[in-house]
Amino acid sequence: MYFYLLVTVLLTAVVLVVGAYVIAKLIGPRSYNPVKGQPFECGVPTRGSSWLPVNVGYYLFAILFLVFDIETVFLYPWAVVVKQLGIAALVSVAFFLLVLIFGLAYAWRKGVLEWK
């Protein structure tokens, strides 16, 4: 029974994707010019290649932000039920925050948060 459901879902997905692509090709605009295909940002035309290497520090900073942002979101459900969970929940969240602080200290010591 699940096999037929899987096949139906896959066929429906394929039909919808192909149908959307065909409809977009049929009724979409057809004005192609070289200026339209150029990279464009902030109203200033680009000079040279737009494929420039980006400093790894930006990626590391973004990853650290996401990690700490998501970990902070995990504290909200705990804060809602903290009275019901007791001291064991307090100890586990303290350990959780300790791991986060060690992670931040490690990143700080490695110089990830310094802009050069």
Rank of each mutant, 00 (worst) to 15 (best):
F3I: 13
V81H: 07
F61D: 11
T12V: 10
R47S: 14
I87S: 14
T12D: 04
S92F: 08
I101D: 01
F95G: 13
N33T: 15
Y59M: 09
I23V: 15
A105M: 06
I70W: 07
G28S: 02
L60K: 15
Q38S: 06
A107H: 02
Y59T: 13
N55Y: 10
G103R: 04
V99A: 06
V67K: 06
V22R: 14
L64G: 15
T8R: 11
L113R: 02
I87L: 14
V14W: 03
M1K: 07
F74W: 10
F74I: 05
S92Y: 08
L113Q: 05
L60E: 11
T46Q: 15
S92V: 08
T12G: 15
P45K: 10
K25F: 05
L104P: 00
F95C: 10
V9N: 02
K116V: 11
L16Q: 04
P45M: 01
L75H: 11
G57Q: 10
L97S: 01
F68L: 12
G86K: 01
R109C: 00
F74C: 12
V73Q: 07
Y106T: 07
A13C: 09
L5W: 06
A89E: 08
A62E: 05
K83P: 03
L104T: 03
Y76V: 15
Q84A: 14
L52Y: 06
G28R: 04
P39R: 06
I101G: 02
V81L: 08
G48A: 04
K110A: 11
A107L: 04
S50L: 06
V80Y: 09
A107K: 07
E114G: 00
G86P: 01
P29G: 06
I70M: 12
V56R: 15
L66D: 01
W108C: 08
L5G: 14
I70A: 10
R109T: 09
G28M: 03
S49E: 04
V15I: 13
S31W: 03
V82T: 10
P77S: 04
L85P: 00
V56Y: 14
K83A: 08
L85H: 02
S50C: 09
S50Y: 15
V73F: 03
I23W: 12
Y76R: 09
F65W: 11
L66S: 07
T8E: 11
A24I: 05
G103A: 03
L100D: 03
V14M: 10
G43T: 05
V80Q: 11
N55R: 12
V9I: 15
